[in-house]
Amino acid sequence: MEAYLVAIGIIALIYVLLSLGLTLQYGLTGLINFGHVGFFAIGAYTSALLVMNGAPFIVGFAGAALLAGIAAWPIGLVSLRLRDDYFAIVTLGFSEVVRIILTSERWLTNGVQGIPGIPRLYSDLGGAAGQIATFATILAVTVAAAWMIRRIAGSPFGRIIEAIRDNEEAVQALGKDPPRFKIQVLVVGAALAGIAGAFYAHYITYIVPEQYIPLVTFYVWMAIIMGGVGRVSGAVIGSVILMAFLEGSRFIRDVVPWISEVDMASVRIGLVGLLLILFIIYRPQGLMGDYTKR
């Protein structure tokens, strides 16, 4: 049971990292990024391939952050001059392009068969101890990321991105270039998603393109909506609720055994959808309150 809780904790923290990136991009800056999973995928594949080709973990993780960040750069240049809704479509398209490339470039990614046997972090410590060490590492990285986002939010840079979210033209009228700020935000958020991807790959040890479907992006959106948009605490709590539901719904079969294993996957998604609807009806500001609507 403890091993199971640690396992859920690790996945929850990966979602927290993803949510923190989106908190910076959407919560603080107002960028509607529907392609978050694309950067998550780039991070997972980059670190897996680097480490399996002999690089140390630290290089794998740095490479994941770097490549995900670099991938965000051209997206920013091309699409940040577009209106919000166009930006959303472009990012959604981007993440699908990433998934299709991962499926098609078999020489590099092994296509739909994916990459098995990715080394685990701390495998020399053995099962339980290795798990706990992995959990501690992700926790430390997540705390550092949360500290960084808090720091950004309370800074001169944070004032400008929040001003951009409130009224972009007024920011221009004051002599500041919104795209310069948005690109930085996009790159930092993507790098966080890349690091989350690297943790994911080294934790589950087997990655396939089908893990990086848009549903993952929308899980992250659900987490920040349920937790409270624009708040670091909201990102954390929303991810925990999401994980509790995704994992908790596993146990529904103990109560209602007539649902088959196959149907269960759909039932889980349905339940999470229901949870989101209930949140939007009864607590639209999220548990911690919506910072953008205060």
Binding site: I152, S155, F157, R159, E162, D166, E169, A170, A173
Partner: peptide, 27 residues
């Protein structure tokens, strides 16, 4: 077109030109 979620003070602070803390590197 006030920055409605920022306070009056923050609106004015945000408007000052050429701030080092406006870039993440500077920050």
């Amino acid at each position: 077109r006030e920055f409605s979620h920022l306070t009056v003070r923050e609106n004015l602070m945000a408007s000052a030109p050429d701030q080092t803390g406006e870039s993440l590197l500077g920050l």
